[in-house]
Design a protein around this nucleic acid. Structure first.
Lengths: 195, 195
DNA sequence: TGACAATCTGACCGATCGGTCAGGGTCTGA
DNA sequence: TCAGACCCTGACCGATCGGTCAGATTGTCA
């Protein structure tokens, strides 16, 4: 009954994604995943070191893109940081909304795990950039509302097509974000109309 | 060692609130709560029928206010519904942000429990009102982003004083919400362009 | 043919969970 | 004095969890 390694490996991954999306990470047991694949729990743990490794492999592509966005953000300040963070995060959230849905509401605990420690830092930098690196409480609060809200909305609207979700989120962000005073004489980037 | 019932009852409630806020509902065991109180787990279950009853009592005031907001919303349409929903929800979220923090990320599973079934319906009506009862995807998406984001921000900024959090959220909502056409002279709503 | 690695499994482990239960104190009021 | 209500507890329960392990099976290749 032994199948090619890649085959079973992929099947487990796909089954895990399906189960996680329905019952969440913690709410899904290795037994659940094994049952969905049609193998034993021991087989799941033969292909993956542990449950966390399974999640990590599932999230890897999204994390890579998040990392890349973080890189693009370094050095940017004020409105420029705000702009890149906003568009970059909306793109990321829309593209990986299945992955976001997997973690629905489990971010806090999961990010506390050492394997995802750096994600916490990245998201803090992202939030800071979203606020245009402003210290104003209003800006910081708005940044968190939008980042958290966009994540949740993407997780909720997994079935809404990209080309409907993305423009709606961008328009909302453009409306909601207060332009921050630019450090340089950053031209006021008046593309506030639709794009 | 027997204390007055109300005393222990209250101590358990307070300890549970503290633990839930740190480790979440599912992440907190009855043993944890008992340890914090300084009693046995059996004592916790003597004062509360089960773990869920403990949570229910903790959330009761917030749920009552949510229910009241829902009542105020019935019959309102368009911009009026939007206005009441926005201000009402911001007030509620700011006032009960400790309670919101308790459930951090566990809303989906908890709302699935029969004891909280009607909360799900209320929050759907609230979201609908927040969107001004509009069918436009953009409005529905924005409503979800703001509702979820406000909840998350309130949970995150438990230590920010009310009079700083509330105006910031209201200003954000005012910026972010697109005014909806009034319900009376329903024009043919040809807003197929941007927005 | 036989050695070897890869794949897979049932049985098992320790830990933890929410919850039950019989019974031991303590207080009160008839 | 004593019955009974109230408060509290340790011991225990069945279920479930993530994870381990020895060994069976299979495919490959010298």
């Amino acid at each position: 009954m032994a199948r090619a390694v890649s085959e079973t490996h992929g099947e487990i991954l796909a089954a895990a994604a399906r189960r996680f999306a329905v019952t969440g990470y913690r709410g899904t047991s290795l037994q659940d995943i094994a049952r969905e694949v049609g193998c034993s729990k021991a087989t799941v743990l033969y292909h993956f070191a542990n449950k966390e490794a399974l999640l990590a492999e599932l999230m890897a592509p999204a994390i890579a893109v998040l990392q890349e966005l973080d890189d693009r953000l370094t050095g940017l300040t004020g409105g420029a940081a705000q702009q890149v963070a906003a568009v970059g995060f909306v793109d990321l959230a829309v593209r990986f909304r299945r992955e976001i849905a997997l973690l629905r509401g489990e971010f806090p605990e999961l990010l506390a795990q050492p394997a995802f420690a750096h994600i916490q830092q990245i998201s803090e930098r992202l939030r800071d950039a979203f606020a245009g690196h402003s210290d104003r409480p209003g800006a910081r609060i708005a940044a968190l509302v939008l980042l958290a809200g966009i994540s949740e909305a993407c997780a909720e609207f997994v079935d809404v097509p990209d080309d409907e979700l993305r423009p709606a989120l961008l328009a909302l962000v453009r409306r909601a974000v207060e332009p921050v005073e630019s450090p340089q004489p950053q031209p006021p980037t008046t593309e506030d109309k639709e794009s």
